[in-house]
Amino acid sequence: MSDVHLPAMRGGRPEGPGGAEHSHKPAYAHLFWWFMFANGGGLAALALPVHILVQGILGPLGIVLVVDQHRDTWISILGNPIVKLYLLVLIALSFFHFAHRLRYLLVDFGVPAAKSTPAQVIFYGGAVVVTLVTVWILLTTVPISLG
């Protein structure tokens, strides 16, 4: 069990039939997932609590007016391309972070299958599916408006 999953410089690959020499090539795939994990975690840490507080508690309780409590203001802000891009990055990166954390949580709970390739396909593939669904919803729900 480790507190921090750091990117590996995965060496140890046998070069040649003897297999005696080891290279230390950067594991690019691992670095990619680490990038998605770290940035997703950072973005969720910086942005998500205020979304939950304002849109999930203060708005529904009527303590403050919030954009998503009225359809016209919600549509108006969702049409902004910067808002669309922000929501896509927030949701997509967060889900890559969640996929990584939940997979390692299962490993820590003694589910070795969570280390397998099918498990990786399910978890990270799930994040890809959520990303594609987010793109589809953002592009089809409210047209892009620059006004």
Partner: peptide, 12 residues
């Protein structure tokens, strides 16, 4: 919660 947000966006 983010899945709910996605649903809220779709509902708009």
């Amino acid at each position: 919660w983010l899945l709910w947000l996605l649903y809220d966006i779709k509902s708009a």
